[in-house]
Design a protein around this nucleic acid. Structure first.
Lengths: 329, 329
DNA sequence: ATGAAAGCGCTAACAT
DNA sequence: ATGTTAGCGCTTTCAT
């Protein structure tokens, strides 16, 4: 494989000049440039990122930390990140932690070892202390889930308000007994979404029933089914469910159907995220739309700016209630 | 940031010795090893992959080429690749081409420029000529979709046989008018799956109706809906549909429901891939299971072996028919 | 406008 | 068992 030396020799110039041509510097005469370009072509030369990266002390790789690639919520965000990354000559390393601290540490090591220039953390289960320490020396952005007091810039939505909006929608439809399928309240977003739920009930003079609040370990389909099973067994059964993820809601949907009940007539359902699949179910799912793609693009821009040494501010994006069949009789 | 020189000075040894400790070589005395380890700790030293990679002429990155991250089929395969990669100290660069040749070329450049050590190509729309040329100098494995004559090792399933199995299942249930929702026959797997469909019909004395064969641009939900719309309009409507992806099948399901018909009584449906969602729909989807995770692990092993310079052979994995509600009255 | 040369951080061949 | 040193391929400063 040809290297820059070979090209220089072939073109009869110095490596410095070849490097200048490679990097599009305008201090090279047209004649020389052509000589170099010919040599490059003739030798089938491809500049090595390995040499360049060492020299520049950068990897041009962004690390994205997600709990699981199986959660479709992340896919759209990743698309956004990816497009910005590519346009700025970065590449992304997609890292699934499976909420496993060991895995997490392997990935953190990548940035410690300069294999990645920065991190976009989307893992709610991330070790905040480690993240904070890492942030002292490395570029880090929190996306979607964040630790408030970490001092690490984040981009997210107003979870409390979004949740409030969802529950208010159900209340306006006449529902008074509304279940909440939430994830573990060790996560900030879970606490925020519960606050919105509680606020909506309170504002409309509805009492809160602790039995109506189900906590799940994960945000998946099976957990939604399980949660709905519990709800089905309640003596005073609710007439509506708000689940904090579409996958949970879809699991609930399935379980409601399995019990021979009808959505939304017997039980209305609202999800969260507006993943693609929320429109493929029968009935289609009312849900809170997050601007996932946009969130990804902004997160990427934030990270790249931070890598450049600029100061970046946290951002809160808008959400939107998308009303579909699962709440429309 | 400390480098290997600093550590050497701090420990009072040479950089060579530090490197030996770093790489776990047993030619270092216990006393020296401890001195070095202390120095590493004291300086908070982290070895730079940038230096190591240049020196070793490797990036320890595997490039995975997929058309779109939105197709859940790939997710499970990626999981498999990822786990093997991690265990062998590789990382994966997930590259979506969106079947866009420009994108594809950006990614191919990464391996040309030594940013990646090899490629697992899963993109049916890949430019085979480019791939072949690249394979002359780089490690490449084809996964799932492949070009027969390329000489590039592949891992896949027997698409013709799998398709035959699916259609035979429908025939055994008594269906005689079976539609095929296939993707563009420019893809090998599409041609293979059509062959299986044709063979099943022939073997059971059923005539083939060209009207029953619908081609779609992509394998998604919307395309499934569109295809089903066309099928619904046929004068002599089929009683069963075999779609070559679960997403297509789920789209078909939705459209059938929208027409007030019942699955499977009015129309039986079979999908392909056994993605997670195929079990979340109502009714659940009969489908052909591909061993996606296993396919990923083997593809990764094949690629890593190829990077090491070993010869690797192509592999065909088993498939399985999973019978669920969409074909069971 | 171009070249010479240093050096990014590491590994390994060779020497001791 | 340990040290010296060359060199992986590139960019950039300093000279000219």
């Amino acid at each position: 494989m040809a290297n820059i030396q070979h090209v220089a020799r072939q073109a009869g110039v110095s490596v410095a000049t070849v490097s200048r041509v490679l990097n599009g510097q305008d201090t090279v005469s047209a004649k020389t440039r052509i000589k170099v370009e010919d040599a490059i072509k003739k030798l089938n030369y491809e500049p090595s990122m390995l040499g360049r990266n060492l020299r520049n002390s950068e990897s041009r790789i962004l690390l994205i930390l997600i709990p699981s690639i199986k959660n479709p919520f992340y896919l759209e965000v990743i698309k956004g990140i990816e497009n910005i990354a590519i346009s700025q000559n970065y590449n992304i390393l997609l890292c699934e932690t499976d909420s496993n601290p060991e895995r997490e540490n392997i990935y953190f090591d990548l940035v410690r070892k300069k294999m990645a220039d920065g991190i976009i953390s989307m893992d709610p289960a991330v070790n905040v202390e480690t993240l904070k320490k890492l942030a002292e020396n490395h570029a880090i952005i929190q996306c979607s889930e964040y630790a408030e007091d970490s001092g690490i810039p984040y981009i997210t939505i107003d979870n409390e308000e979004a949740s409030y909006l969802a529950v208010k929608h159900l209340i306006k439809l006449g529902h008074e007994k509304i279940a909440l399928v939430n994830s573990d309240e060790k996560y900030l977003y879970a606490r925020q979404r519960k606050l919105g739920y509680v606020r909506a009930l309170k504002e409309h003079g509805l009492s809160m029933n602790e039995q109506y609040i189900i906590h799940t370990e994960e945000l998946g389909f099976e957990q939604g089914q399980q949660a709905m099973k519990k709800i089905m067994q309640l003596a005073d059964r609710p007439t509506a469910v708000f689940a904090v993820s579409d996958l949970l809601a879809i699991g609930a949907l399935k379980e409601i159907n399995a019990n021979g009940l009808h959505v939304p007539n017997d039980m209305a359902v609202v999800g969260f995220d507006k993943i693609d699949f929320s429109n493929m179910t029968n009935p289609t799912l009312t849900t809170i739309a997050q601007p996932m793609y946009k969130m990804g693009t902004i997160a990427a821009k934030m990270l790249i700016n931070q890598i450049k040494g600029e100061h970046v501010d946290s951002i809160i994006l808008d959400h939107e209630l998308v009303i579909r069949e699962s709440t429309l009789g």
